[in-house]
Each structure stands twice: as C-alpha cells, then as structure tokens.
Amino acid sequence: MLSLEEKILVYQNEGEGFEILSTVIFVGIILSGITYSVLSLRALAIYKKRIKDNFSSIEKINLQWLLRLVFGLSIIWVLVFFADDKIIFSSVVLFVVFIGYYGIKQVGIFTNKHALELSLTTESKEIIEQCIAEPQITKYEKSALTDSQLKAIHGELVHLMKQKKLFLTPELTLTMVAEELEIHPNILSQVINTVEQKNFFDYVNTLRIEEFKDRIAKYDYQKYTLLSLAYECGFNSKTSFNRNFKNLMGKSPSEYLKECKAMLD
C-alpha cells in the first residue's frame, strides 16, 4: 500500500516505475467492462424468453429499457479511456438520471406474489411428481409426460379457451391459465411448447387474432373500428395488435379488412 507521499511522487513522475501495474489495471478494467456487458446481454436474452413463456402482453414489462442501460454503461466504459473528466462525469450523471426514469416507469415482472403462487390439488401434485421422475435430454429435462398426457392436457386447454375465452383478458398470464386447469405452470408451458410449437405469448395472441377475424367477418361488427375490435379481443395497444397480426397473417389489419370487403362486394 502506497503512502500519500509515494502516490504524489508517482503522479508527479507520470507513473514512472509503475508501468506494469498500470498496464495490468488498464487491462483489468477493459476485461471487466467487456465481461459485464456480455453477461448482461446474455441474462437479458434469457429473461426475454421467460417473459414470452409466462405473459400474453409484454409491452409494459419488456426489457428494452434495461438493454438501453447496458449499452449506456458500455459507452461510459469507452469514454473512460478516450474522453476527459468533464465528459465522463457528465455521462455518468446522465446515466443515473436514465436509471431513475426507467426505474420509476417500469412495472414489476416476476415480483407479483399472486402470479407466482399456485394451490395444487392432489391430482396435479401427482402429475408433477411424474414430471420429475426421470431426466430426459429435452428442453424440459425433468419432464416425463407421455404423449397421451400431453394430448389430454392440451385438450383441456383448448376446451377451456373455447368455453371461457380467457385470451380476451388483456393481462392474461400462464399462471392464471394453469390455475384454471389445476396444473403446474411448468407443465402447461411444456404442453403449449410441445403440442402448439409456440410459447405462451404467441399461442394466446394467435387465439386473439383468430377471434378478431371471426368478429370482423360478422356484419354487425363492420361499424366498429379495427382498434376497438382489437381491444375487445384482448389486445391492450395498437402497436401490439398490428405487430402480432402482421406476424401471423403476413399483412396489416387494414389490408386484411380491404380483402374481406372486396370478397363481400
């Protein structure tokens, strides 16, 4: 540990005699910045997938804001080596302001206790025990559900969606549907992924699009706007509706409506 006098001497001599130590510190700072950025981006990719596996609407809980903060912090790392102190400190202050803004604006994702709690029946507990019985080399490593079990649960899911039309609920979650079926969310997620070949987000929004198409085909609904119909079908924003519709149909809602009107004429 250097004394204050020694530190002053090093500073006055512009680091002479401590070149190796300075190089090690410089390399360490660069590596820590790169490592942090890479690990942060990897974690974001994992959580982004988790969101689509558990929520049907992600506009208010997406992690784009956090991605911007990671990029912002990476820029600060670069400025540390190439900019003067005034620019560095100004960028840090601006970064802290952005953290505060996004921190207040962003809602909780996995902190809702009600969304994470599930009262399991005896039957559902037995199914879970079967699911963790033998490990398999699949996406769901601990799952041992048979094809017949997958089809049975999927049949119950389809029946539930037709009867209660849960997909009309804008903030529908995987846990909410699992509670209706009295099974564990992980099992339901596996069923949707395996049978439907979709995550929960895509599955629910596909049902919403199909409901929209059914309603727009009815003459009574011709007097409603596209956006009002979209809200009735479970979408909570115009952006979400347009994006999901185009992803599924390959065309915008307005283009689809024009084709429908042309067919009627």
Rank of each mutant, 00 (worst) to 15 (best):
W65N: 10
K48S: 10
F95D: 00
Y221Q: 04
K238M: 05
L172E: 00
I75A: 13
F245D: 00
L188D: 00
M161I: 08
D147M: 08
V195T: 07
E5R: 08
R215T: 03
N186L: 12
Y140T: 00
Q12A: 11
N244Y: 12
L172W: 05
D84E: 09
N193F: 13
D202Q: 08
Y221N: 15
A133D: 13
G103R: 08
K151P: 01
Y47H: 11
Q130F: 09
E255C: 02
T138R: 13
T175Q: 05
L160C: 03
A178N: 01
F26H: 11
K151F: 12
V93N: 08
I29D: 08
I109E: 01
E232Q: 10
E14R: 14
H114R: 11
D220F: 13
P170E: 00
G17S: 05
S57N: 14
F82D: 00
T173H: 07
T239V: 08
N244L: 12
N186G: 07
R68H: 12
T35P: 01
Y36G: 01
D84V: 02
Q136R: 15
D202R: 10
E210S: 06
I46Y: 10
K164L: 10
A144R: 15
L248Q: 11
K142I: 13
K151N: 09
F26M: 07
R42Y: 14
I61M: 06
L226R: 02
N193E: 14
C233I: 08
I137C: 02
F212E: 06
H114C: 01
R68L: 11
S90I: 09
S90E: 15
Y101F: 15
I58D: 04
N54Q: 09
L2S: 04
N247K: 15
H154A: 05
S90D: 11
A230Q: 01
Y256G: 02
Q12W: 07
Y102T: 05
I109T: 07
K49W: 08
K165E: 15
L21F: 12
I34L: 09
I25A: 13
E59S: 12
L157A: 03
L44V: 02
I29H: 14
L21G: 08
E255Y: 08
I76S: 03
E117C: 07
I128K: 02
I127T: 07
K238R: 07
R208L: 07
A45R: 15
M161D: 04
C131F: 02
Y140F: 15
K165P: 14
K258H: 14
L166F: 10
A83S: 15
T225S: 15
K139W: 03
F82Y: 13
V80W: 13
H154E: 06
E259V: 06
N199K: 06
M249V: 12
I137Q: 06
L21S: 10
E196I: 00
A133N: 12
L9P: 00
T194W: 09
L174M: 03
